[in-house]
Nucleic acid binder design. Structure first.
Ligand SMILES: [Mn+2]
Ligand SMILES: [Mn+2]
Ligand SMILES: [Mn+2]
Ligand SMILES: [Mn+2]
Lengths: 227, 227
DNA sequence: AATTATTTTTAGCCTTATCTAAAAAAATAT
DNA sequence: ATATTTTTTTAGATAAGGCTAAAAATAATT
């Protein structure tokens, strides 16, 4: 029989908790089996199995057929994984010359390394960053995040100015698209016009005028500048 | 059916290859099942099972009842794991304020992170270290190590001077013992006398005279100074 | 050479994390 | 209010990696 240390959480369990954490953020507090299965690219039956294990360990609240929500302990564990993921992403970009489209896969592995000292020292080494390379907030030791008031670019009015502060889609393809058009965190953007037909936008990025589709505009977070 | 990328090696397989690599270094080329089991704190039957898998993947040469040896590919894989382990140990000590007795457990986890870019950039970031915090050599990209001519402290003659360049036992207990007596890599040591009865040594460490047992002397690697 | 001891392998079982297919419950549509 | 569709759960299988106990092979003694 393997020695079980104070509520050990497996790598797989951590990934489920993280998925529930992210899905739960989007408003509702009861996350469905199917939503988890889709997010994790697995089958609903596998999700049900795992949910039972997590409920047994008091990491989620679970009532059959009614979805799950994280307990306090589950939320803290998930936040810790997210914290590690984002700190490592900062490390990779700031110290190891990774670009923002290359960090995610590696961070998916690094987020499971268990060592409190490692996380704390990494945080210190990076000088306590508050956001990762995609503009996402880094939870603190207690799992708290300071949410900033960012909005989706497509919601701005014509002529408004704003600054890019994050992305909704962190896929390499989208990030490389943004690179190509010189859009990065901190980039100034002005809405020049909106096409009524397909809701595409003409925007000015650092004095260069470009056209972006509605889909693109839906995936860029900005902070509106004072008019 | 999971997609198998070009000869995927699991975490467990990596650990077995590493154990065989380390056991193989000590002279003989055929490593016994029991030796692996002991080193990995597992059972001989589990070792036999795993050896079969590794042989199937052409990572080890295996003849029933006659032990195993690494193939070229197996040795390269093992060396890559050792390279990562030692590079991470350097990182933890040099950048994250870990002491040399705290790094091993974390490096055991970090050594399995898969990303060529990560290893290469880490190597660059650390300015291409050749040895880890315990004085062990770091294999290069091709798995080659430059072996230095270090000897065991207990083999020196009375009155000889030397410099500590490594340890044979990397356990936290032993490393803390060395800390307590101010012995670190680079420390100058002179043999003052050897007790015939128990082969304990009286040595001078930076002008301080101390006594160390034969066991301790057997686990300190030194480079002899010109007489 | 025969016996005993040790090492290694095999056989069978267990746990974790998956899957497919079928059953049950809940949600939606008629 | 029924019937149909969708979602969720259960049942049964599988693969990886581990274990114990027994069998087989090798090594060491008498
Ligand atoms: Mn990420
Ligand atoms: Mn991110
Ligand atoms: Mn180590
Ligand atoms: Mn080391």
């Amino acid at each position: 029989m393997p020695i079980i240390l104070k509520s050990m959480v497996t790598l797989s369990e951590e990934n489920y908790l993280k998925a529930i954490y992210h899905l739960g953020k989007q408003g509702v507090n009861a996350v469905s089996t199917n939503a988890i299965a889709e997010k994790m690219d697995t089958k609903a039956s596998s999700v049900t199995d795992m949910i039972k294990k997590l409920a047994e360990k008091n990491l989620v609240n679970y009532i059959k057929y009614q979805g799950v929500s994280l307990t306090k302990e589950g939320r803290l564990t998930a936040a810790s994984v997210v914290r590690k993921h984002r700190l490592w992403e900062v490390f990779l970009v700031e110290k190891l010359q990774f670009s923002w489209d290359e960090v995610h896969e590696v961070a998916e592995q690094l987020e499971h390394i268990q060592s409190k000292k490692l996380v704390n020292e990494l945080d210190t080494f990076l000088e306590y960053p508050t956001h990762d390379p995609h503009g996402d907030p880094i939870p603190d030791k207690d799992g708290n995040i300071t949410k900033t008031d960012k909005i989706i670019l497509s919601q701005l009015q014509v002529n408004q100015r704003c600054m890019c502060v994050g992305v909704n889609d962190s896929s390499a393809d989208f990030l490389k698209y943004l690179d190509k058009h010189h859009i990065a965190l901190g980039t100034q953007i002005q809405i020049l016009s909106k096409e009524p037909f397909d809701e595409s936008l003409t925007i000015k990025v650092d004095d260069v005028v470009i056209n972006i589709s509605k889909v693109v505009a839906n995936n860029i977070y900005v902070k509106s500048q004072t008019l």
